[in-house]
Design a protein around this nucleic acid. Structure first.
Lengths: 229, 229
DNA sequence: CAGTGGTCTAGACCACAAG
DNA sequence: TTGTGGTCTAGACCACTGG
């Protein structure tokens, strides 16, 4: 009587939703469940592990498996290369380099990148365009000590975004998402009205303990991140 | 020579990062890899499946496994109950019901919820507070046809947010994230300056084909969503 | 059609943590 | 200490899909 792990998972979801396994309760052990459902323990394990990953169950060795009180829904956004994001929506992608310089970064930046004061970084500003209209503004700081090869890249052709994604694999990254108002400089670059609310993403990536890059993306007005739960 | 699947995955990540398996290339089959690494095929499968889930590989039956050109990083945010979010950051949670009424929803809302014109819904406005200061404004439409039990709940005590999370499991949900400016009403309710940029989240949840609820959350100025990649 | 990934089974050992 | 989940193995069959 073989059941696929998806079927087994479906049954478990039913039991959780219908309060057969109430929130906070311990559910039967894998051994009991696989006997009851006449399938192998590995199959039960796969189903339970999947539910734990999606935030419905909490599993601990020896302690057993518990139904979480507050099912924690997880939203996952994919962070695409901007060019692909534009092209996927049918737009013509363009890219304009606004600034490229080696300079000592502000304290605030260095702090967030965990670098010593007065460190010189590569500073890069670029505008991503969709159908020749501003799509997003990128302000990036790059730690040349970690990716020295970068200095030879022609950013007029390849966007830093894209080069880094495919050439500087990172082991860790932070991402933070907020809103900001269009100040004079932003409004000019994104060709929008002063004071409009804009979506802002800040991301930093790390290779081990070393910061690779810190980037701030500000999207043109109206942009929304979307996903399915 | 047993290797854990995490070890095997580590080795595969190394090969990808060091271009031993270049982007776009087909990698060896599971059968070849498990022989080379002297472990079972299931172990190799687990490692490769994990890498595919995290967006580094593309797997197709018969076609084999391919290294993706543009590794697609995925950011996952957990969508907590707001009370827990406030309490987790050490604040005192409060909740104020601003409005509660049955009424015919605007066409725009009904359309997004895939309901017939002129349908009557429960409309609820509430303010979530952290340390007695506004934290987020919630504007919610609820389809009473799907959750009739809801009519008896005292929303002065339990927030709709919380009740729905634990009593109305949904099978599907959409989430969209953007920025909006504080208009007069928002500014008054969130006690902030007019025109400030605010983070806005819209979410709709579904039980099968039926829409359960549509909610818009607008956070107080300065709020940021954060996550680790 | 045939090759590749997807999954199942039974049995075994291990690692962690509660008591 | 001991129960529970975590994982590995070998072998088998299935399902999808490219050629």
């Amino acid at each position: 009587m073989a059941s696929s792990w998806q079927t087994v998972r479906g049954e478990f979801i039913r039991r959780i939703n219908e309060r057969e396994w109430p929130p906070g309760e311990i559910i039967p052990t894998e051994a009991q469940l696989c006997q009851e459902l006449s399938c192998s323990r590995v199959t039960v394990n796969r189903a339970l592990r999947d539910l734990a990953e999606s935030g419905l169950l909490d599993r601990k060795r020896k302690a057993g498996t518990r139904v979480l009180q507050n099912p924690e829904r997880k939203a996952t956004f994919s962070i695409p290369v901007i060019r692909l994001e534009v092209e996927a929506s049918g737009g013509k992608y363009g890219h304009r380099l606004l600034k490229l310089a080696r300079k000592v970064a502000p304290t605030k930046v260095l702090k967030r990148m965990a670098l010593a004061p007065e460190t010189e970084l590569l500073c890069l500003h670029a505008l991503h365009m969709a159908d020749d209209k501003p799509f997003a503004l990128e302000e990036r700081w790059i730690n040349l000590a970690v990716v020295p090869e970068l200095e030879k890249i022609d950013f007029e052709v390849t966007s830093a975004n894209e080069w880094l994604v495919s050439h500087a694999p990172f082991s860790r990254g932070d991402l933070s998402l907020g809103a900001c108002s269009a100040n004079k400089s932003l409004a000019a670059r994104l060709q929008c009205e002063l004071g409009l609310a804009l979506l802002e993403i800040e991301r930093s990536t790390w290779k081990g303990d070393e910061s690779i890059t810190l980037v701030r993306l500000v999207y043109a007005p109206g942009y929304r991140l979307q996903t399915v739960l």
